[in-house]
């Protein structure tokens, strides 16, 4: 799939932002006054910046408000609702902490649940797509959730919890890659099932000489040797390096480096999440033939 920068940025930033909301909502003794203001400002900046950047890829933005209509069937619509509910609930919680020094614990818990729900709905937008087998697996929502919680724990300063979630996220990430590399064959869609022709089927002629929306959007291929390198870079930046920094004596500067490294790593994993994802329509254009299930 085409790795659109706006969507990659959105899922990385808002993931960390909503993760921070989760920990702010669940803290037994949350900060008050100016300290609370700083924490909530960071959380809102990340989550809202992410949500805004997600609207950049809409080609007809004036109808974006209509995306609240079909929550009964659409994960994208549910995400829009969850995000608004989470941001509004956390606003009540944040105002009480910042201006009145009052800790409305149940509101915080509700906000934390809604924040997690937002991340989950984001992940389900991709997970639900059978046409993209690499995304259509259990590890996809787990990966989004664990990375969001790891980022949130780091941003809120829970060192031990952050280390635990970093380990979990790293494990889920490896699982997602391992399973993802097998999903296309498992889905069983091949150029033979796509065309229902027999024998060794190859594309003889494309429908048109030029590119089209489908080939640009869905038939994206990334060189395998680059993919392996990028996976190593992403894993080191997102998991290994922040873990090492967390084990060192903590300081604000070190924490900042750990968080930046983590976010850069997550950005790389999200780029790979899109760039490596094979849409079955690629088969009609002669792509991904090496990924399909071997003929029985």
């Amino acid at each position: 799939m085409h790795p659109a920068p706006s969507v990659i940025l959105f899922s990385t930033l808002s993931g960390a932002g909503f993760g921070l909301f989760v920990f702010l909502g669940l803290m037994p003794v949350p900060p008050v006054g100016w300290a609370a203001f700083v924490f909530f400002a960071v959380a809102y900046a990340l989550s809202v910046a992410g949500l805004l950047s997600a609207t950049f890829h809409l080609k007809n933005k004036k109808n974006a408000w209509k995306s609240y209509r079909e929550w009964r069937t659409s994960w994208l619509s549910r995400e829009a609702w969850a995000a608004v509910f989470a941001l509004l609930t956390m606003a009540v919680y944040a105002i009480a902490l910042i201006f009145f020094g009052v800790h409305l614990a149940p509101v915080g818990w509700l906000g934390a649940i809604l924040s997690l729900a937002t991340v989950f709905t984001t992940a389900m937008i991709y997970t639900q797509l059978r046409a993209v087998p690499r995304w259509n697996q259990t590890a996809t929502p787990l990966m989004f959730l664990t990375f969001s919680l790891a980022g949130g724990a780091m941003l809120s300063g829970f060192v031990t919890v952050a280390a635990a979630f970093l380990l979990a996220a790293g494990g889920v990430l490896l699982w997602h890659w391992w399973k993802g590399d097998r999903r296309f064959a498992e889905a069983g869609t091949t150029i033979q099932s796509a065309t229902r022709l027999h024998d060794r089927v190859t594309l003889f002629e494309k429908p048109h000489t030029g590119d089209n929306y489908l080939t640009r959007e869905m038939v994206f291929r990334v060189a395998r040797k680059h993919a392996v390198k990028l996976r190593v870079i992403a894993f080191v930046l997102a998991v290994v390096f922040p873990l090492i920094l967390l084990l060192l004596p903590m300081s604000h500067a070190l924490a900042a480096v750990a968080i930046l490294s983590h976010l850069a790593g997550v950005l790389t994993t999200r780029w790979l999440f899109f760039a490596e994802a094979e849409h079955v329509v690629g088969l009609y254009y002669g792509a991904h033939l090496g990924k399909q299930a071997r003929a029985a």
Binding site: N63, V132, T189, M218
Partner: peptide
């Protein structure tokens, strides 16, 4: 077309490549 916001998710969901966003109309 009056309700489409051009997000392209339906085209992603289609395994056959039967949907295309018109790049001029954004629909």
């Amino acid at each position: 077309e009056d309700a489409c916001m051009g997000c392209g998710l339906c085209a992603w969901a289609c395994p056959y490549g039967a949907r295309e966003v018109d790049e001029v109309a954004g629909i």
